[in-house]
Design a protein around this nucleic acid. Structure first.
Length: 549
DNA sequence: GCCGTTTTCGGCCCGACTGTTTTCAGTCG
């Protein structure tokens, strides 16, 4: 079964092999294609069927042909040939930190070393001593890297889920903001772009006393190792294994540095080619014409100097956003202040009328205009439970000026469960079940589903998710987006949005202020290119009731 | 191998840091 992920993996492996073979530009070309394919919101097969492989950034004639070969046969001849040319162990050498293609190639060609085990033996036998370019420190470094790789064979390439990085980023940024001399401190990189997973955490600081910032950074409680420390950057590894890069720049360069360290790589490369075309140079210190800095203090300035509108970080993947920004300001993406409706709140079965009062009070203080509370649900075993009748009654009378209060039931597909027969509900939250593949038709019973939740539940096949999104479209329902295994990530959110399905985002009601769920859900929706109109709102509901029943 | 307000050929982002070098190569992001 061909998959985008496997195709990307093949092209990445081809890049590594070409690297070891000493190719100059092809490896990056294959990696670029791999990155594009990975973030594609659609199956390669579907794109190929429309004859549109060439529209994928970084995919041209040659790679397009290899994709078609892969889709048809499951393999790529070119890849198989390269694998026969290079011993597998030589590619493994590339995984060692500090050891790149040039060195791996030298080991292989000059010393006949064909893998990590042979390299270790060679070092212990003193075969590297006296070889040009290998001093004592370098050899020690390699020995340590080999030992680390033996102890944890697959570490170093793991990416952390963004929700787990949030508290870490928050803590570090706060700590650095507290350092005397710090003017600004921000997390950048894929974290700021709100990617689902984060490889390294990038932190950017402007300060009048950089040394103090580096000292505070090194002294953070969970720093396990300092990997690099220079006058403008430092890299540490936390106890969790997360690598954190810190850069300190002068305030006049903050915008340029933030832009640069937010990436993505492809986005930045594209920006620079535009700069060159205009006789400009972009780096992390600013936009320069000859030696004169023409922009740098803010990101808006940097984009402006290149003739572009500012681009939200979540869109910076070089997937067409730059071309859009060249034509004028981008349409606004959904923002925190658009999240004025909460459609999916659970209360414990023991909830009392006064719990309702508290919930309503919180909804008002958050300026929500809609509050939907689950009053009855069917759990995974088919057992139904509902809130006490007195609580439900209180809910019915809870609406206040400016706040609509609604009752929801949450069920799987199929006939409405009997226990809810007399329970008045305003809408239904549908929870997909994997065991109902034949039932992909819009339910006709009332109330109709408004939200499809828990869709990303672990183990759900992509094809099934696709069918649920299609069901949502036909039923005019929305799908939940956000972090965690039970909501959809930004790639799926984009697929949903592009097929006209609204996205349901949490409002944060009932969550502590430091909980990142809302920020991440918002980030995913923004990555999907969603504006406020793509989000399920109170008015989406009123529009439905007017046109329906 | 890709790509084009610099190009259909000839480029391919740019700088920091480390180690090994007396001026640079390799790696990394």
């Amino acid at each position: 079964m061909p998959s985008n992920a496997e195709a990307a993996e093949i092209f990445r492996n081809i890049a590594d092999l070409l690297d070891v073979l000493g190719e100059r530009f092809k490896p990056e070309a294959y990696r670029r294609a791999a990155r594009s394919i990975e973030t594609l919101a659609e199956d390669l097969g579907a794109v190929a069927a429309r004859n549109e492989l060439g529209s994928i950034p970084g995919v041209g004639e040659a790679i397009g042909e290899k994709i078609r070969e892969y889709l048809a046969t499951g393999t790529v001849h070119y890849y198989e040939r390269l694998k026969r040319e290079v011993p597998p162990g030589v590619v493994e050498l590339l995984r060692l930190p500090g050891l790149g293609p040039k060195t791996a190639r030298r080991f292989w060609v000059e010393l006949g070393i064909e893998g990590p085990a042979e390299l270790a033996t060679a070092i212990e036998a003193g075969r590297l001593t006296g070889v040009k370019g290998f001093g004592e420190k370098k050899i020690d470094q390699i020995r340590l890297a080999l030992a680390a790789a033996r102890a944890a064979p697959r570490s170093g390439h793991d990416r952390a889920a963004i929700e787990s990085v949030y508290p870490v980023a928050e803590r570090i940024v706060q700590a650095l903001r507290a350092v005397p001399g710090t003017e600004r401190a921000e997390a950048a990189g894929s974290f700021r772009r709100c990617r689902e997973s984060v490889g390294d955490l990038d932190i950017l600081v402007t300060s009048t006393a950089p040394e103090k910032v580096f000292d505070a950074f090194t002294a953070l409680p969970d720093v396990r190792e300092v990997r690099v420390r220079g006058p403008t950057k430092e890299t540490v590894v936390l106890a969790s294994g997360l690598q954190v890069d810190l850069r300190v720049v002068e305030p006049a360069a903050f915008g340029a540095a933030l832009q640069y360290f937010t990436g993505s790589k492809d986005h930045n490369v594209h920006l620079r080619s535009i700069a060159r075309a205009r006789g400009l140079k972009v780096n992390e210190y600013g936009v320069f014409r000859d030696d004169e800095r023409v922009a740098g203090r803010t990101e808006e300035e940097v984009y402006g100097a290149l003739g572009l509108a500012w681009i939200p970080p979540e869109l910076r993947e070089d997937l067409g956003e730059i071309e859009l920004a060249a034509r004028g300001p981008l349409p606004p993406l959904v923002a925190q202040e658009d999240l004025v409706a909460e459609f999916h709140v659970h209360l414990p079965p023991t909830a009392s009328p006064s719990d309702i009062d508290r919930l309503v009070a919180e909804a008002r203080s958050r300026r929500l205009s809609f509050l939907g509370v689950v009053v009855g649900e069917v759990d995974a075993d088919g057992h139904a439970r509902s809130l006490p009748p007195s609580t439900v009654r209180r809910l019915g009378a809870a609406a206040v000026e400016g706040l609509t209060v609604a009752r929801a039931i949450e069920t799987g597909l199929g006939p409405r469960p009997e226990p809810f027969g007399r329970l008045a509900a305003d809408y239904r939250i549908l929870r997909p079940t994997r065991s109902e593949p034949a039932a992909f038709a819009p339910p006709t019973d009332r109330p109709e589903p408004l939200v499809i939740a828990h869709l990303g539940a672990e183990g759900t096949a992509p094809e099934t998710v696709r069918r649920w999104i299609d069901l949502a479209r036909r039923a005019s329902a929305s799908v939940e987006v956000g972090p965690g295994p039970e909501r959809l990530d930004s790639t799926w959110a984009r697929i949903a949005r592009e097929s006209g399905v609204r996205l349901a985002l949490p409002s944060g009601l009932g969550l502590p202020p430091e909980d990142p769920t809302v920020a991440i859900a918002l980030g995913f929706a923004r990555r999907a290119g969603a504006g406020a109109s793509a989000i399920l709102q109170k008015r989406s509901l009123s529009a439905r009731s007017r046109s329906g029943t």
